[in-house]
Amino acid sequence: MTSQPIGFLDSGVGGLTVVKEALKQLPNESIVFLGDQARLPYGPRPTEEVAHFVQQIAGFLLDQHIKALVLACNTATAAALPILQAKLSIPVVGVIDSGSQTAVRVSTGQHIGVIATEGTIKSHAYQRAISNLSPNASIEGLACPEFVTVVEADKYHDEQTNQLVADQLRYFKTHPVDTLILGCTHFPLLADSIQAAMGPDVTLVDSGVETVSVIKQLLSEQHLLNTDSEAEQPKFYTTGDIDGFTAIGKDWLQVPDLDVTHVPVEHLKQYGDLASKETSYEA
């Protein structure tokens, strides 16, 4: 089972920021990623609907014989992580706990901000995770759905985007924090703009980077790390436009070629809510 791939899922291309870190930390591991661009954004959707979508994608990835699953999406993590952990026998990791732990550790004054989608902010998942770790922490949450839109439109290099980010994050001028969690995996693509808007004294925390460290540790503890063979070329799937996905993927991952396949949403729907899905695979 050690040579089987790790599955990653996201509502769009943002999860590629987590894949990029996985390629660094886990160079021997094969990767299968699905971005559900056709149903983006997840943030404004009801929690139950997001959980339904995530289980469909998980079913698809299980058919790729994955040995672990990473929810490379904060909204998906808030909506579906406990459900998948209860239903699947393989390791399942989300991004919220990992980012919260790092933020509490690096924060100098326990004044922590979170920027994320509407769904993640409304779920209060980060607030609960941080409060459990540091009961005296002050937490400021801000929904920034427009950030997802500009990343998905491949406009994260545009000058207008720098202004958008600055305008959105002006909230923190009157609600100061010393640490800011990028609570959406799309947001690291805007890290330079976000840092410029927040100032040099604010530490940015990329939840995706920390999540890869967690999955690496889990795989090691369960003797699932691939040490015997080279990684296969990563496989990418999108329910949306292949050309748009490929353009962003090449730019962010800095690779000349991507193996990208379109998966119709109707194909994902056959997986339902994993009620009758086999949840364990042998190597």
Rank of each mutant, 00 (worst) to 15 (best):
I115V: 10
A116M: 12
A116Y: 12
I115C: 07
A153L: 07
T120P: 00
G109H: 11
Q110C: 00
F147Y: 14
S131L: 08
N136H: 13
A103R: 08
E152L: 13
E118T: 07
R105N: 02
G141V: 06
S131G: 02
E140Q: 06
N132R: 13
I139F: 08
G113R: 08
V114I: 15
A143H: 07
T108L: 03
V151L: 11
H157I: 12
R105F: 04
V148H: 03
E146C: 09
I121R: 00
P145I: 11
A116I: 12
E118P: 01
N136E: 09
P145N: 11
V150A: 08
T108V: 11
A116Q: 07
A129W: 01
E118F: 06
F147C: 12
V106Q: 00
C144H: 08
R128F: 15
T108I: 11
G141Q: 14
A129N: 02
V104F: 05
V104W: 10
S138P: 06
E140S: 11
V104Q: 01
A116S: 15
Q127C: 01
H157V: 12
P135R: 01
I130T: 02
Y126G: 09
H124T: 11
H111F: 14
A125S: 07
I112Q: 11
V104M: 05
L142V: 03
V150P: 00
V106H: 00
H111M: 11
N132E: 11
T117R: 09
E146H: 04
V114P: 14
Q127P: 03
S134Q: 03
V148L: 02
N132Q: 12
V150C: 10
A153E: 14
H157A: 10
V148F: 07
S123R: 00
I130W: 10
S131N: 05
N136L: 06
H111K: 08
G119H: 08
H124S: 03
L142E: 14
P145Q: 04
E152K: 02
Q110L: 06
T108M: 08
E140K: 08
V104D: 03
Q110K: 00
K155C: 15
S134T: 07
Y156S: 00
V148S: 09
V151T: 13
I112M: 07
K122Y: 01
N136A: 00
E152P: 06
H111C: 02
A137W: 13
S123F: 01
E152R: 08
G113A: 06
A116P: 10
V106K: 00
V106G: 03
